[in-house]
Design a protein around this nucleic acid. Structure first.
Length: 582
DNA sequence: GCCGTTTTCGGCCCGACTGTTTTCAGTCG
C-alpha cells in the first residue's frame, strides 16, 4: 500500500473530528480540539508524515501518542480503527448533515434518535412533513432556516473552499464598496485571507466605525449580496455572488488591535495567547487585553501593544497557526518579519516582447523605477515556448532596446535575462554560447506537470546545475485550486540548489504562491539556499503583487538575509557572477 | 487527547447571534 499523502492524513483526521463530535455530543471537546491541533500541525509540514516513526510524530508539537498511532494505523491499514467503529454507529451520511450550516452535533444526534433521520433526503422529508419542529428547541423558524441552508449546501463545506486569489477579489470589492459608504473610518480584511492561506472558507472583514448600525445596513445591502445569513448590532454574515460567505464585524477604534487579532486568528493561535494571558492574571477577548481582577484594560488599540503586554514580539499574521510560533517568539527564534521595503529588485518581469506580455518595455521599466526599486531583470520568454517566446534575433533586438533604456533610466540597474523553459528532460532553450550572452536566467517548468516524481526531480536537478540558470521560477507550476503542481524530491532539489548557488523563486501571484509555504520551510533548512521573491509581472499592474510574495516568504519564516533580491546590488551581482561560469 | 517556568494529573479561551427560551442551549468563529 502506498503511503498516504499529508492531505489524505488530514482528510482522515477531519473525519475523525466530526465522528468524535457526534460521539461526544458536542462540537468542542478537548479530544476534538486536540485532533484539530494535530491537523494544523500536519498541514504545515511538507514531508509525508505517514512515513515518520511514532517518536518522530510525537516530537511534533500538537501530536501525541494517540494521534501518532492513528496516523500509523492509517498508513498500515488504509483506515483508522476508531473511525471504522464510529461509522457503525453513525452512517457517513450524517457527516453530510453536520456540514449544513446551523446543524451541530446535538441537533444531528436528535435527528437520528428522535426521527430516525440520518441523511439529507430524510431531513428534507422531515421538514416537508413538519416533523422537524417537534424536536426540542426547534420551531418553525429553525425549520425554514435549515431548509434554506440545505439549498446552500456545499458553499460552506471544506470541499468548497475558495482559492485565495478569488477570495481576495471579493474582499477588495466589498472593501471598496464599504469605503464608498463613507461610514467606515478604517477597513481591513482579516481571517485566513490575512494569514494568506491558500484557500479561504469565509472572507472576514473588520470595520472601525462609530456608526455600527449604518455599516451593517450598508453591508447587507451591497450589490452582489445574494443571501443574508445573519445580522446583529455589531456583526453580520452574507453570501456574495452565491459562492462565498463574507463576515463583517464593526468595532470602536479603541478596540481595533484586539479585534484584528481576534478576527485574524488562527483559532489555535488565539487560544494559546489567551492561555498565556490567563497565566498572568489577564484575559484576552476581541475588545481588549485586560486585568481579570480590576477589569482594567492593559492593551487594545494595536496588535503590537497586546503582544508586547504578553512579553512577545509582534507575530506576523501569516505564521499565526498555533503550531509553535508563539514558543519560538518567546525564545527569540522568529526572524524579523520581512517587509516589502526590504525588496530591492524584481528578478522576473515580462514585457510586450513576450507574446503574453501586456506592457511595453518603457511602461514596465518606468513602473519599476516608480516603485523605487534599484534593479530589475527583464525575463521575457525564450524560444522553446513557441507562442510567447523570443527568437534569437528578437533577443538581440531586445538587448539593444535595453541598452537604450539604461541611458534613459540611469538610476535603475537593468539586467537582460530570460525566462527559460525547462523541458521534460531538463534541457533549456538556446545553446550555451547564446545563453552566456544573458546577464541572468530564470528557468521554469510550463508543461509536463504530471511526470513521475523521479523524472520531475531529474528535470529540475538538470536545470539547477545549468550555469545559465540563476533562479528556478515557480518551481511546482501549480495554480491554486486549478491545477496541482509537479511533485519532486524537494530535499534533492533544494540541496543541489544550495550547492550550485541557484535561487528558488517564491512567485508572488496569488494564483501561484509557488513555492508553497511548507516547502519554503523545508527549503529554509538548507544552509546557503537563497530565495527570489518575484512578481512574474506581465503587466505593470502586477508589480504590486510583490506584497503577496513577501507575505508568502514570511509564511515560510524567511528572513531578509535569505532573499536574493533583498541584497544590495553589489552582493546580488556577486551571487549571480559566481554561478554564471560557462 | 495533549502537555508541563506551579502540573506525569488535572487542567484546557471567549463572546455574538439565533431561536426558543422567560434564563438558556446550540452553533459559529
Amino acid at each position: 500500500m502506498s503511503t498516504p499523502s499529508n492531505a489524505a492524513v488530514v482528510a482522515a483526521l477531519r473525519q475523525l473530528v466530526v465522528y468524535t463530535q457526534l460521539e461526544d455530543g458536542r462540537s468542542q471537546s478537548f479530544r476534538t480540539r486536540a485532533y484539530e491541533k494535530a491537523i494544523d500541525a500536519i498541514s504545515a509540514r511538507s514531508e509525508p508524515v505517514a512515513e515518520l516513526s511514532i517518536s518522530e510524530l510525537t516530537a511534533i508539537e500538537g501530536i501525541g501518542d494517540s494521534t501518532a498511532r492513528k496516523v500509523k494505523e492509517l498508513a498500515a491499514n488504509g483506515s483508522i480503527g476508531k473511525v471504522d467503529r464510529l461509522k457503525e454507529r453513525f452512517p457517513p451520511s450524517m457527516l453530510e448533515l453536520m456540514r449544513i450550516p446551523g446543524l451541530g452535533p446535538k441537533t444531528v444526534l436528535a435527528l437520528q434518535s428522535k426521527l430516525g433521520v440520518t441523511d439529507v433526503a430524510g431531513l428534507e422529508e422531515a421538514i416537508a412533513t413538519e416533523k422537524l419542529r417537534t424536536l426540542p428547541g426547534l420551531g418553525v423558524k429553525s425549520e425554514q432556516k435549515i431548509a434554506g441552508a440545505i439549498e446552500l449546501l456545499g458553499i460552506h463545506s471544506d470541499e468548497r473552499r475558495t482559492p485565495v486569489f478569488d477570495a481576495m477579489l471579493v474582499a477588495r470589492r466589498i472593501i471598496a464598496d464599504l469605503e464608498a459608504s463613507g461610514l467606515a473610518e478604517q477597513i481591513e480584511f482579516a481571517g485566513s485571507l490575512r494569514r494568506l492561506e491558500e484557500t479561504i472558507g469565509d472572507v472576514d472583514i473588520l470595520v472601525v466605525s462609530s456608526h455600527a448600525a449604518g455599516v451593517i445596513e450598508a453591508f447587507v445591502s451591497l450589490p452582489g449580496v445574494t443571501a443574508v445569513m445573519g445580522s446583529g448590532s455589531t456583526k453580520a454574515s452574507v453570501v456574495v455572488d452565491d459562492t462565498i460567505q463574507v463576515d463583517l464585524r464593526v468595532v470602536d477604534a479603541g478596540a481595533f488591535g484586539a479585534a484584528l487579532l481576534y478576527f485574524t486568528g488562527s483559532k489555535a493561535h488565539n487560544i494559546e495567547l489567551r492561555q498565556i494571558a490567563l497565566a498572568r492574571g489577564l484575559t484576552l477577548n476581541e475588545y481588549s487585553l485586560s486585568d481579570i481582577e480590576s477589569k482594567e484594560s492593559v492593551a487594545s488599540v494595536s496588535e503590537k501593544s497586546i503582544y508586547h503586554a504578553l512579553d512577545l514580539p509582534w507575530i506576523t499574521p501569516e505564521i499565526r497557526e498555533g503550531i509553535g510560533e508563539i514558543g519560538a517568539a518567546r525564545e527569540g527564534l522568529l526572524p524579523n518579519p520581512l517587509m516589502e521595503s526590504d525588496i530591492k529588485g524584481d528578478l522576473h518581469v515580462h514585457t510586450a516582447w513576450s507574446g503574453d506580455g501586456r506592457s511595453s518595455m518603457t511602461e514596465m521599466l518606468d513602473a519599476v523605477a516608480a516603485r523605487g526599486l534599484e534593479y530589475v531583470v527583464v525575463t521575457d520568454h525564450a524560444e522553446d515556448l513557441a507562442i510567447n517566446g523570443l527568437s534569437r534575433g528578437e533577443v538581440l533586438e531586445e538587448r539593444a532596446e535595453i541598452e537604450a533604456q539604461r541611458l534613459r533610466l540611469p538610476e535603475l540597474t537593468i539586467l537582460h535575462g530570460a525566462e527559460l523553459n525547462i523541458g521534460p528532460d531538463g534541457d533549456i532553450d538556446y545553446d550555451a554560447e547564446f545563453l552566456s550572452g544573458f546577464d541572468f536566467g530564470v528557468a521554469s517548468i510550463h508543461s509536463h506537470l504530471d511526470l513521475a516524481q523521479d523524472r520531475q526531480t531529474h528535470r529540475l536537478l538538470a536545470a539547477v546545475a545549468n550555469p545559465a540558470v540563476n533562479v528556478i521560477g515557480h518551481p511546482s507550476g501549480r495554480k491554486i485550486g486549478r491545477r496541482p503542481g509537479a511533485v519532486f524530491d524537494a530535499d534533492a532539489v533544494f540541496s543541489a540548489a544550495a550547492e550550485n548557488g541557484t535561487a528558488i523563486e517564491i512567485n508572488s501571484h496569488l494564483q501561484r504562491l509557488d513555492l508553497a509555504a511548507p516547502l519554503i520551510r523545508q527549503a529554509m533548512t538548507f544552509n546557503g539556499l537563497m530565495f527570489s521573491i518575484a512578481t512574474d509581472s506581465h503587466h505593470t499592474s502586477e508589480l504590486g503583487n510583490i506584497r503577496w510574495g513577501v507575505a508568502q516568504a514570511r509564511k515560510g519564516w524567511v528572513p531578509a538575509a535569505r532573499v536574493l533580491n533583498c541584497l544590495t546590488l553589489t552582493e546580488f551581482s556577486a551571487f549571480v557572477a559566481r554561478k554564471r561560469r560557462f
